[in-house]
Amino acid sequence: MTVCINGQFFSSNEAKISVFDHGLLYGDGVFDTIAAVDGKIWWLDEHLERLFQGCSSILLKHPWSKSELSELTKETFLQTKQRSGRIRITITRGVGDIPSYSIDSCQPNLIIFVTPLDFPEESVYSQGLSLKSVPYSRIFPKVKNLSFLPSVLGYIEAKNTGYDDSVFVNYSEYVTEGTTWNIFLLTNNKLITPGDSLLIGVTRNKVIELAEYLGISVEESFVPLEMLYSAQEVFITGTTKRIIGVTQVDNFVIGNGCVGGLTSKLLKEYCRVFY
Rank of each mutant, 00 (worst) to 15 (best):
219 E>G: 04
60 L>E: 06
42 W>Y: 15
58 I>P: 03
156 I>W: 05
78 L>P: 02
248 Q>V: 02
163 Y>A: 02
174 Y>H: 15
242 R>Y: 04
57 S>D: 14
236 I>K: 01
182 N>M: 02
101 Y>S: 00
18 S>Y: 08
90 T>H: 03
9 F>R: 01
191 L>G: 04
50 R>G: 13
53 Q>A: 13
272 R>T: 13
52 F>L: 13
187 T>V: 12
135 P>I: 06
144 K>A: 11
216 I>A: 03
186 L>W: 01
147 S>W: 06
58 I>E: 05
270 Y>R: 05
199 L>H: 03
175 V>D: 01
103 I>V: 12
94 G>F: 07
23 G>Y: 09
25 L>W: 06
80 T>A: 08
200 I>T: 14
189 N>W: 02
107 Q>T: 14
237 T>C: 02
3 V>Q: 00
147 S>P: 00
245 G>D: 07
90 T>A: 08
2 T>R: 04
34 I>M: 10
30 V>E: 10
25 L>A: 02
106 C>N: 11
186 L>I: 10
200 I>W: 06
215 G>Q: 06
132 K>F: 12
43 W>R: 10
121 E>Q: 11
160 N>G: 01
103 I>P: 00
157 E>D: 15
59 L>E: 13
59 L>H: 14
186 L>Y: 00
251 N>R: 10
218 V>M: 01
101 Y>M: 09
89 I>N: 05
257 G>F: 07
38 D>V: 08
111 I>H: 06
156 I>P: 00
80 T>W: 07
248 Q>E: 14
222 F>L: 14
23 G>E: 04
99 P>E: 06
87 I>H: 03
42 W>C: 05
199 L>W: 00
226 E>T: 15
262 L>K: 08
143 V>L: 04
31 F>T: 08
275 Y>K: 00
57 S>W: 00
95 V>L: 06
212 E>H: 05
142 K>L: 12
189 N>E: 14
22 H>M: 07
193 T>M: 07
15 A>S: 09
95 V>T: 12
234 V>K: 05
209 E>R: 13
98 I>R: 15
137 S>K: 09
90 T>L: 09
54 G>Q: 01
22 H>P: 00
139 I>F: 12
82 Q>S: 14
62 H>F: 13
59 L>R: 14
231 A>L: 06
266 L>W: 08
123 S>L: 06
15 A>M: 08
256 N>V: 11
221 S>E: 12
164 D>T: 02
47 H>M: 10
75 E>L: 09
231 A>S: 15
78 L>D: 11
60 L>P: 00
65 S>C: 08
134 V>W: 05
159 K>E: 03
178 G>T: 03
193 T>F: 10
144 K>D: 14
72 L>R: 06
23 G>Q: 03
156 I>M: 12
172 S>K: 15
139 I>S: 10
136 Y>S: 08
40 K>H: 15
10 F>K: 02
191 L>Y: 02
73 T>L: 08
66 K>C: 09
40 K>Q: 14
140 F>R: 12
253 V>D: 10
205 N>S: 12
156 I>R: 11
125 Y>E: 09
211 A>V: 03
232 Q>I: 03
267 L>H: 11
33 T>S: 14
247 T>I: 15
13 N>V: 08
275 Y>P: 01
200 I>C: 12
133 S>N: 09
56 S>L: 09
